[in-house]
Amino acid sequence: MNIWAALLAGGALTYLTRLSFIFLFGIIDPPEVLRRALRFVPPAVLSAIVFQELLIRNGAVFLSLGNARLLAGMAAILVGVRTKNSLWVIATGMIILLILNQILPG
């Protein structure tokens, strides 16, 4: 294995992926269906990451009252819906997680 070759090639491909539509948009106008679709990219991707963070532990689904991250995350979601304040969401979630980590086994 040539680590530097892999690094440069992998980096170049990653860069082209990031550049792809940003570069092409000036040349090709996107069809209406793509415009409509793009509105849903942020809620879909962010929510997907959140669900995985809260529900997956060590590569498996962890749906249980013993899942401290799930409980802390749900409390944070409730606080977010009520307060609409990011800092409260993060503070609530971290504090509840730290408390639950002391209480819950393993």
């Binding site: 959140v50 993060i90 979630g93 997680l97």
Partner: peptide
């Protein structure tokens, strides 16, 4: 976990 919470706050 702060990262996950931040994603929640943004979603």
């Amino acid at each position: 976990f702060a990262a996950a919470l931040t994603f929640i706050a943004m979603t």
